[in-house]
Simulated assay, not measured.
Amino acid sequence: MNPTDYAALIHPAIAVAFVFPIIGMVVNFAWQTRQRRLQSVGEGKSKIPPIVGQEHLKLGKWLTGAVVGVCLLGMAYPTFSKAIENQAFTKQPGEMVFLILMFAATIASLVFLYKAQPRLWRAIFAFLSSLGVLVIGFQDIILRREGLGWIFRRDYEWQYSHFYYGITVTLLMIFSLAIVKEIYQDRSNRWRYIHIFLNCFALLLFIGQGMTGTRDLLEIPLGWQETHLYKCDFTNKICP
C-alpha cells in the first residue's frame, strides 16, 4: 500500500472506530429515554434514572458533529487527491479556492449551529451547513466540470449508493441538532415524534452505510492495481 491507499482508509477507519459506537450508545439512551417517558405516564414512576435523557442529548450532539465530520472527510479525500493528480491547484486555482472555502464555511456553519439559540439563527446555520455539504458533494455539477466527478456518487445506482445514504443521514443529523429546543419546548410532542420518525429512518441508513461502505472497500483497488484492473470488462467480468 502506498500513502494514497492509507489516506483512503482514514474515512472508514474513523467511521468504524468512533461514529458507529456513538450510534449504538445514542440508540441505547434513546430507547431508555422513551421507555422512561412511557413508564412515567402509565405507572407514575420509572426505575430508569432521569439522566438517560441528558446523556441521549449530549451524545446526540456528539453524533451530529461526528457524522458531519466523517462525511466531509470522506468527500475531502477524493476531492484533493484527484486535484493533486490532475494538477488542479495550478490549472484551476479559482475552483480549488472555492472548494476550500466551502469546506471551511460548512465547518464554521456547524460550529455556529451548536452555539445558536434563536430559532431563526438555528435555521440559517442548519441551512448553510446542509448547503455546504450538498455543494461539495455535487461540485462537478455546480462547477460544470467536464468528465466524471471527483467524488464517486454511483448515480446509476443511487438507491444503493454509499454517497447518497451518507448525504441523507448527514442532513438528517443537522436537522436533528437544529430542532433540539423545539423538541423540549413543544408540549404537543409534535417535534418529538418528527425527531423519532426521522432518526429511525436515519438508523436504517446507518445500517445501509455499513453495508455499502464495505462493498465499496472491496471494489476500490490499490493504487498499483488501478492500471491493470481498469482494463477489465466489468459487464462481462473478463480481464485481459
Score class of each variant (00 low, 15 high):
N2S: 13
P3G: 02
P3N: 05
T4C: 09
L9M: 06
H11K: 13
H11W: 12
P12Y: 11
V19L: 15
P21C: 06
P21H: 06
G24I: 00
V27K: 09
V27R: 04
F29E: 11
F29D: 10
Q32V: 07
Q32E: 13
Q32A: 14
T33I: 10
R34Q: 14
S40R: 04
K47Y: 07
K47N: 12
K47I: 11
Q54N: 12
K58W: 10
W62N: 07
W62T: 12
G65F: 06
V67C: 07
V68K: 08
V70F: 06
V70P: 05
C71V: 13
L72P: 07
L72S: 09
G74E: 14
A76V: 01
Y77M: 12
T79Q: 08
F80T: 13
E85Q: 13
F89D: 05
K91P: 01
K91D: 10
Q92W: 05
G94C: 00
G94P: 03
G94Q: 03
E95V: 13
V97N: 06
I100Q: 10
L101T: 13
L101W: 10
M102A: 01
T106I: 02
A108R: 00
A108M: 09
F112I: 03
A116P: 10
A116Q: 02
L120V: 15
W121N: 09
A123D: 00
F125I: 05
A126H: 08
A126S: 13
S130N: 03
L134K: 08
L134N: 04
F138A: 00
Q139P: 10
D140A: 09
I141S: 14
R145T: 12
G147S: 09
L148I: 03
G149L: 08
I151S: 10
R154N: 14
D155I: 06
S161Y: 12
S161E: 15
F163Y: 15
G166M: 12
I167D: 00
T168Y: 01
T168P: 04
T168R: 00
V169C: 10
L171N: 07
L172E: 03
F175R: 04
L177T: 04
I179E: 02
I183F: 09
S188R: 15
R190K: 15
R190C: 04
R192E: 01
Y193A: 09
I194S: 12
I194P: 07
L198D: 12
F201L: 15
A202V: 08
L203W: 01
I207R: 00
G208H: 11
M211Y: 08
G213W: 05
R215A: 12
L218Y: 07
E219V: 02
L222W: 09
W224Y: 15
Q225D: 15
Q225G: 02
T227H: 14
T227K: 13
Y230K: 11
C232A: 14
C232P: 09
F234Y: 10
F234M: 07
C239N: 10
C239D: 05
